[in-house]
C-alpha cells in the first residue's frame, strides 16, 4: 500500500548514537555520540540498550530546544524479546507510546506511523526510531557472545546503535516525507539465519518496485535508494533482481545498502552490519545530513526486516521478511 502525504511532514531533527565498536564504521563521523562502554555503564546489556535509547532521545531534544513534555508521541522498537528496552525507555520519555515491531525495518515503519499521526493533526512533535544492541540480541537470536562457532561469509554483524528522528509539521528548511510504502510480508522459503540478505532481498524488491509503479517513477528519479541491512551479498542479489527486470547498470548503482557499507571493507564483519539500529543510525545521520546539504534531492529509504525468531528457526520454519519505504525530499 502506497501512502501519499499531502502535508509533507518534515524531519525536524535527528540523532544517532552508537557503541564502541561502531568507531570502525564509515559513518562514524556522522554519529552524534559514541559511547566508551558498550553497556553504557549499566549492569546488563539490556539496561545499556535502554540508556542508549534515552541518550539518543535526549540529544534529539537538545538539538531542537524542546522539552520532553512537548513530545506528543514516542514510536519506536528494538529487537530484544517483547521490546523491553524501548518500553523501559518510554517510561522516562513520558510521551504517548506505541511500541512497533517490524524487526530491522522498525526505523522506517515508526516514521510512517509518526507521519500518519502528524497528517491527522494528532501530533505536533513525534519521536520515531529504532535501536539494536549487539550483545543483547546476539545471545537471544544466536549463541552466547563467547561461544566459538564459525559463521559463514554471508553472516552479518548486529550493530550497537540507535537512530531517532523528530517528525513535525512541514517545514521547507528540513527534509520532508512525501510518500511511503508499507511492505507486505514476503517469504521465498529461505531458512538460513546466517544468510538474512537473501531472505530479505525479495521483500525489498517487492516494496521498491511497487512504490515506483504506484508513484509512476523510475529508479533514476532518485539520487539514492538505500536499503537497510541486506548486507554485501543481499545487496548484490537485489541489484541482480532489478537487472533481470530491465534496470540498467547505471540505475543499479543508485542502490546502496546501509548494512553493506556500515563497517566498510573490514572482512572480520563478514557480509556487513545488520540490526534495527543499523538502518536507523545511517538514515537518521548520514542520509539526512546529505539531504540537508543539498547533495541529495530525493531519496527512497527502504528498511528491511526479517520477522523470524530463534523458536521458529528451531521449529524448521522459513524466514518471512518485510520492507517499508519512505520517500524523502529536500526542496
Amino acid at each position: 500500500m502506497v501512502i501519499v502525504f499531502g502535508q509533507k511532514p518534515s524531519i525536524i531533527a535527528s540523532a544517532a548514537v552508537a557503541g564502541p565498536l561502531e568507531r570502525k564504521s564509515v559513518f562514524y563521523s556522522y554519529f552524534d555520540s559514541v559511547v566508551e562502554d558498550e553497556r553504557w555503564n549499566q549492569a546488563t546489556n539490556e539496561q545499556g540498550n535502554v540508556k542508549m535509547i534515552q541518550e539518543a532521545c535526549q540529544i534529539l531534544l537538545n538539538k531542537t530546544g524542546l522539552n520532553r513534555l512537548d513530545i506528543d508521541f514516542f514510536l519506536a522498537g528494538d529487537l530484544v524479546n517483547q521490546m523491553t528496552p524501548t518500553n523501559f525507555a518510554a517510561r522516562e520519555i513520558a510521551a504517548s507510546f506505541i511500541g512497533l515491531f517490524s524487526a530491522c525495518a522498525t526505523s522506517v515503519s515508526s516514521v510512517i506511523v509518526a507521519c500518519l499521526l502528524t497528517e491527522l493533526g494528532a501530533s505536533q512533535y513525534a519521536i520515531a526510531g529504532a535501536s539494536s544492541h549487539h550483545n543483547a540480541i546476539e545471545r537471544q537470536f544466536r549463541y552466547p557472545i563467547y561461544y566459538g562457532s564459525q559463521k559463514p561469509a554471508t553472516a552479518q554483524w548486529t550493530v550497537t546503535a540507535a537512530g531517532f528522528t523528530l517528525i513535525g509539521k512541514h517545514n521547507p528548511k528540513n527534509p520532508s516525507i512525501v510518500a511511503a510504502t508499507v511492505g507486505k510480508v514476503i517469504d521465498y522459503g529461505q531458512k538460513d539465519p546466517f544468510h538474512m540478505g537473501a531472505a530479505m532481498a525479495p521483500a525489498a524488491y517487492d516494496t521498491i518496485s511497487r512504490h515506483l509503479e504506484k508513484r509512476k517513477q523510475q529508479i533514476k528519479d532518485y539520487d539514492l535508494i538505500m536499503t537497510g541491512d541486506l548486507g554485501k551479498i543481499g545487496l548484490q542479489i537485489l541489484k541482480k533482481m532489478f537487472a533481470e527486470t530491465g534496470a540498467t547498470r547505471e540505475e543499479c548503482n543508485i542502490f546502496r545498502d546501509a548494512g553493506a557499507e556500515f563497517y566498510g571493507e573490514d572482512p572480520s564483519f563478514l557480509a556487513g552490519a545488520s540490526g534495527s539500529g543499523c538502518s536507523a543510525s545511517v538514515y537518521f545521520s548520514y542520509v539526512l545530513q546529505q539531504l540537508k546539504s543539498g547533495r541529495f534531492k530525493r531519496v527512497l529509504l527502504v528498511a528491511t526486516g526479517s520477522l523470524h525468531s530463534p523458536l521458529t528457526f528451531q521449529q524448521g520454519e522459513s524466514i518471512p521478511c518485510t520492507a517499508h519505504a519512505i520517500e524523502v525530499t529536500m526542496e
Binding site: A153, T154, Y188, G189, Q190, H195, A198, A201, P202, Y205, I233, Q236, I237, K240, M241, E244, T245
Partner: peptide
C-alpha cells in the same frame, strides 16, 4: 519475481 528465478539469482551470487 518467480521463485525459480529468484533461487537461480540467489545461488549464483551467494559465495
Amino acid at each position: 519475481m518467480e521463485q525459480e528465478k529468484f533461487d537461480k539469482i540467489e545461488q549464483e551470487i551467494t559465495p
